[in-house]
Structure formats: structure tokens, C-alpha cells
Amino acid sequence: MGRVSQGTRGAIAFMTLLPLGGSLNAVSLVVIPLTGLIVGSVAFVGFWLGDRSGSALVGAVVALIVDAALTRGLHYDAVADTADGLAGFVTRERRLAIMDEPTVGAFAVVALVVVVLVRVAAWSSITFPAFVIGFFVLSRALMALAMMWFPLAKESSMAQVFASQRRRWIIWALIAEALIAIVVTALLATSLVAIAIVFGAGCGFGVLALAVRRLGGITGDVVGAVGLVAESGMLLATAVMRVHG
């Protein structure tokens, strides 16, 4: 029980700013998707409070701020670093070095602007229905599965902490969590939400494929970028379907 408690608190503390302590272990990987419930629910409340002003756009901006604050901006920073590292025509070693640098390049700025605009526009359009919380869970399930399935691009990466815990039961547990999230999300919305989920997952796998091709594997930044890109893709697809009936 102690190991379970440590792993649970460690996952929540790592994925959010909640100071719960704990340590990262195999249990942490299984808990990672569940942290999406926390972040998604708080962002939902943030949108609701902002929407009380009479503007869905204000609600979307508040939800974005809450999302970024609660996750300490980790995933947004990961998108920036990954964009700088995967873009351009340089060697693999140089790409990894760029991702470790504290500076921000043009590709990072463009990627962040696109992600922020997509999320704000989508939330403004669909007004953050409760089923969107499922997207937060699914994006984190994809992040955890990526650390189970894909090789590491370098040893000194946060992803290595989790990859060292690779167990078959963890993969099955993550898949089960993802399936439950898909079913619940579809029940709260419509079966068409499956299209949005597939599109978002495809966006995430696209980042993974590019990382494997150009880096030879994944890093902690790549994993974080995969989650945020997949989540944003699901939001975008949902907004497009909502607009076009």
C-alpha cells in the first residue's frame, strides 16, 4: 500500500503543481491518465467562472490559464522545445542539444501560438462541455503509453524514469483506462466524438513518428508535446464537427 500511495502522490505532484510529495514508480504510470481528471475538471470550473462574464471567449482564456498554471506550463514548454528540436535541417545531436537549451526559437513561438489559438478557439466554440474532460484523460493515457512503447532518444531524459518501469500489466492497465475514458466520453457526448478522438490521437502519433525519425526515439519534451497536441487535436475536431452539425 505504501508503494501505491507513494506512486499515486508522485504522479499527481509531477503532473500538476499540487505539493503532494511521493515518488515516481510503476504505479505512477497508471495514475498519469487519472491526473487528467484533476486538470480537466479544474479547467472546466475555470471556463464556467469566466463564462459567467457573458463571453465564451473569456471562459476559454480562463480555462487556458488554469490549465497552464495547474500543470506548471510543462506541456506548453514541451511543445516549444519539441518544435525547435524537430524542425529545421540539423543533425540528430544538434536537435537534442537545441531541445535542452533554455532559449526559444521561431519554431517554438509558432507552435505555441498555434496550440493556444486552437484551444481558445475550440473552447469558445464548444463552450467546454463536460465530456471534454475525457480528452484530458486520453491525452495523458497516450503520453504514458508512448513511454511504454517507444525507444528513448537519450538516457538523461525524464521519460527514462518511467520507461525503466516498463511492465506488461501497466500497458494493459493504461489501455483499459483509455477505453473506459472513450466509452464515458462518448456516452456524455455522441458517438461522433470518436472521430475527434481518432483525429487527436493521430496528431499525437504524428509527433511521435517525427520524433522517432529525427531523434531516434522520444524524450520527456516529446512526450509532453504529444499529450498537448493530441488534446488540442481532439478539441479542434470537436469544434469543427459542432460548427458543421
Rank of each mutant, 00 (worst) to 15 (best):
V115H: 08
L117P: 05
L117M: 14
V118H: 06
V120Q: 10
A121H: 09
W123H: 07
S125Q: 13
S125L: 09
S125M: 06
I126F: 08
I126M: 09
I126N: 07
T127P: 00
F128L: 13
F128T: 03
F131T: 02
F131H: 15
V132W: 13
V132Q: 06
V132Y: 08
G134H: 00
G134R: 00
G134Q: 00
F136P: 03
F136C: 02
V137D: 03
V137T: 05
V137A: 04
L138I: 15
R140T: 00
R140W: 10
A141V: 13
M143P: 00
M143C: 10
A144V: 07
A144S: 14
L145S: 06
L145P: 10
P151N: 02
L152D: 13
L152F: 09
A153D: 13
K154E: 12
K154T: 02
E155N: 04
E155T: 08
S156F: 04
S156P: 00
M158W: 05
A159D: 09
V161D: 05
V161A: 11
F162W: 12
A163F: 02
Q165K: 15
Q165W: 11
R166S: 10
W169V: 05
I170Q: 10
I170V: 15
A173I: 01
A173G: 06
L174G: 02
I175K: 07
A176D: 01
A176W: 02
A181R: 04
A181C: 11
A181T: 05
V183K: 10
T185M: 05
A186N: 04
L187K: 11
T190P: 05
S191L: 10
L192C: 00
L192E: 14
L192V: 08
V193T: 14
A194L: 15
I195L: 14
I195T: 07
A196M: 04
A196R: 05
A196P: 07
I197C: 06
V198S: 09
V198Q: 13
G200K: 12
G200R: 07
G200P: 13
A201F: 15
C203G: 03
C203P: 01
G204A: 03
G204V: 02
F205A: 01
F205S: 02
V207L: 13
L208P: 00
A211C: 05
V212N: 14
R213A: 08
L215V: 05
G216Q: 07
G216P: 11
G216C: 05
G216T: 09
I218Y: 06
G220A: 06
D221E: 09
V222M: 08
G224Y: 14
G227W: 00
G227Q: 15
G227S: 15
L228P: 03
V229C: 06
S232M: 04
G233N: 03
M234L: 07
